[in-house]
Amino acid sequence: MRALLVVNPAATTTSARTRDVLAHALASDLKLEVATTRYRGHARDLARQAAQGGTTELVIALGGDGTVNEVVNGLLHDGPAPERLPRLAVVPGGSTNVFARALGMPNDVVEATGHLLDALEAGSERTVGLGIAGGTPGTDDAEIPDRWFTFTAGLGFDAGVIGRVEQQRERGKRSTHPLYVRQVVRQFLNEPHRRTGTITLEREGAEPVTELALSIVCNTAPWSYFGNKPLYAAPEASFDTGLDVLGLRRLTPLAVSRYGTQLLTSSPERGPRGKHAATLHDLTRFTLHSQAPLPFQMDGDHLGLRTSVSFTGVRRALRVIV
């Protein structure tokens, strides 16, 4: 099998030696080409070339969720067609690795490589659904291009936290859980829409969901991890269904304490709940509008401020080695 290994050299939890050992192990079973990313968006370009070239059968992403997102967007540059596109495989190398772990991959580079080789030998794969987010016609954000996401997107509070973390990382800070906790506190203290949210969710054939202060879109469960603890914002979310949404209408100290505790103690059977929580399951199309520009993120990548984002859940979008 002809394969392309896309390596992010800045991956949080891998060293040059580890990457060399991994490449050597994969090359023993595959006709392997190794490409190292050199700039933001390079993984997307490499995956697009592999998809359009017609000879690559497998693209392996070695890196965190951001690298995986770029590879997926490159593979799906011309749209989903699982039967003709290269398969995707993921070796986790980031700080959280939500997509890989949601697929059942070990959260260790060496173990994940062994798991991948076993899966290739057994021909073990699945087809997963993904999400698309983009501009909304008739709004100031209409010209924003569509972009695929693998596990989550968010408009509002959580995206603001991610933006703060990215700023700290650009200053040389490591992506650690204490860093995230500090940025959650800072985002809360500076959140201007804690008591009355500005976000409205609209979908065809249903009443709008209004005054949301936080909106998290999930394509799978868990939504994220705190160390080894999975966090279930939308426990019913799945790669086999449409998109799920968790919206919160209040971010007061009491509400944040309550919902934060529920998130930390969440399970596959029970997520955040309460009179200020709105949960929606298996949505195909919907739009989030905000009365004020809010931070927006996809797969943990801060994408700036938005006032309107349209979402589509696409079933059976891509084949993945598991």
Rank of each mutant, 00 (worst) to 15 (best):
S266R: 08
E211V: 12
L212T: 04
Q262K: 10
S290Y: 02
A237Y: 01
L243T: 04
L243I: 01
R285N: 12
G271T: 06
L283P: 00
T241P: 04
R249T: 07
A237W: 00
T265P: 01
M298A: 15
E236W: 11
Y225T: 04
S238G: 08
E269F: 13
F239L: 01
T220E: 07
S290P: 01
P295N: 08
W223H: 14
R258Y: 09
H289L: 15
L294W: 00
N219E: 12
R273N: 06
P272K: 02
P295M: 13
E211W: 04
A213S: 13
L251H: 01
I216N: 11
P222H: 07
R270H: 11
L288G: 02
P235Y: 02
E269V: 15
T284V: 15
L264F: 06
S266W: 06
A278Y: 10
I199M: 12
E204V: 14
L263I: 12
Y225P: 00
S290R: 01
G271S: 06
Y259R: 05
R273W: 11
N228D: 15
P272I: 05
D301N: 06
N228P: 14
T287I: 11
A206K: 10
G247P: 00
T284C: 06
D299L: 05
R203A: 11
A255S: 13
E204K: 14
L214Q: 00
T241V: 10
A237P: 00
A206E: 10
F296D: 01
L214N: 06
F226R: 07
T252L: 05
G300L: 03
D282R: 00
A255Y: 06
D301M: 03
A292M: 11
W223L: 13
L231D: 02
L246T: 01
A255P: 02
W223C: 13
A255N: 09
L288R: 03
R273T: 12
I199T: 02
G242Y: 01
L294S: 01
H281D: 14
A292N: 13
P235S: 07
E269Y: 12
A255I: 09
T198F: 05
A278R: 12
C218R: 09
H281Q: 11
V217G: 08
V245C: 03
L280V: 04
P295Q: 11
T220P: 04
R270P: 03
A221F: 10
E236P: 08
D301C: 07
P230V: 09
F226V: 13
R203E: 12
L280D: 01
E236Y: 13
K229S: 14
N228R: 14
P295T: 10
T241D: 10
H281G: 09
L283H: 02
H281Y: 10
Y232I: 07
L243W: 05
L248P: 00
P268Q: 06
L201A: 07
V217K: 02
V209E: 11
P293W: 06
L201C: 10
V217H: 03
P293F: 08
A255G: 09
I199F: 00
Q297D: 03
M298K: 08
T284E: 14
R203Y: 10
P268H: 05
K229Y: 04
T200V: 08
S238Q: 13
